[in-house]
């Protein structure tokens, strides 16, 4: 029982990372309708930027985090400006393939610059484990979860309450109407990519400091896609629930049934979900026109 609780806590904590990255995914999907397969690579670049600032340039971790987050925001906005805005209105498959291509380029560049070997990130999260009663949680994971949770919460508040957040939501509800009430739709689109850059960059730094840093760090994002599908692509609140659930479920499966099941289970859940309720748990019914 104790062990079960321990695995559960670890699972929920790692689910927090999924939540953060999945929020980044959802905001892009809502405001620009782009299905972003490069989300994992954006996480990876964020983590490498942090490593470059702290481990290679020795700037200390507060500056390192700022530099890494700023860098990944700029990168995301650059991708949107340079590649996706010119392709607005193209069929879905084109946009999806572009994000695949961008992901491949980023992964390759990271491999060329930093090499294929695993790199240990400079420690900045405290290692000391945290006890809740008798349940032990590794320190890095707990602090990572706290950081990630705070950021997610801040983002959700921003998205719900701030003027910009409302503009993003208005755009996702109806682009035409949003434009006619004076919202700059292009700016909203760039902005949501930049926010995604921030969120994924932060998620990447946490993942990197937990598992070490390789160009294939982005592969965890495949579970993020499962989270998003389970939540139904468009629901911010749903992503939080689904992310924590997938993290918890996956860790338990991995602990009790072995690692091979771990990568496959989230997708089995999604597959069942899709045959039962194709819009996901909290997805909205989108109206299609002829």
């Amino acid at each position: 029982m104790l062990q079960f609780l321990e695995y559960s806590m670890i699972g929920v904590a790692s689910g927090g990372i999924y939540v953060l990255a999945a929020l980044g995914f959802v905001i892009i999907y809502k405001s620009t309708n782009v299905f972003n397969f490069a989300i994992g690579e954006m996480m990876m670049i964020g983590a490498y930027l942090f490593y470059a600032a702290t481990g290679q340039l020795h700037l200390g971790w507060p500056i390192g985090i700022l530099a890494a987050l700023g860098g990944s925001m700029a990168l995301a906005a650059g991708i949107e400006r340079g590649l996706l805005q010119p392709l607005i209105g193209q069929p879905t498959i084109v946009l999806v393939m572009v994000t695949f291509g961008v992901g491949s380029i980023l992964r390759g560049l990271a491999g060329m610059i930093w090499g294929p070997d695993i790199i240990q990130m400079p420690d900045f999260l405290p290692r000391k484990p945290i006890f809740i009663g008798d349940v032990l949680i590794p320190g890095k994971l707990a602090w990572g979860f706290i950081a990630v949770g705070t950021l997610s919460l801040a983002f959700i508040l921003y998205y719900r309450l701030s003027r910009t957040g409302i503009a993003i939501r208005a755009t996702s509800a109806d682009q035409m109407t949003a434009e006619s009430v004076g919202i700059n739709v292009r700016r909203v689109s760039s902005l949501s990519w930049a926010i995604t850059g921030l969120l994924t960059g932060a998620a990447g730094i946490v993942v990197g400091s937990l598992n070490g840093l390789t160009p294939t760090l982005g592969l965890v994002a495949l579970n993020v896609l499962a989270v998003v599908m389970l939540a139904g692509m468009t629901s911010v609140g749903g992503v939080v629930v689904a992310g924590l659930f997938i993290g918890w479920f996956e860790t338990l499966i991995g602990a009790y049934l072995g690692g091979a099941w771990q990568s496959f289970m989230p997708y089995l859940v999604v597959l069942v979900m899709m045959t039962v309720k194709p819009n996901g748990l909290f997805g909205e019914q989108r109206v299609e026109r002829i």
Partner: peptide, 8 residues
């Protein structure tokens, strides 16, 4: 990695 870059 170069192959991946060119691929993308």
């Amino acid at each position: 990695p170069l192959r991946e870059v060119i691929f993308g």
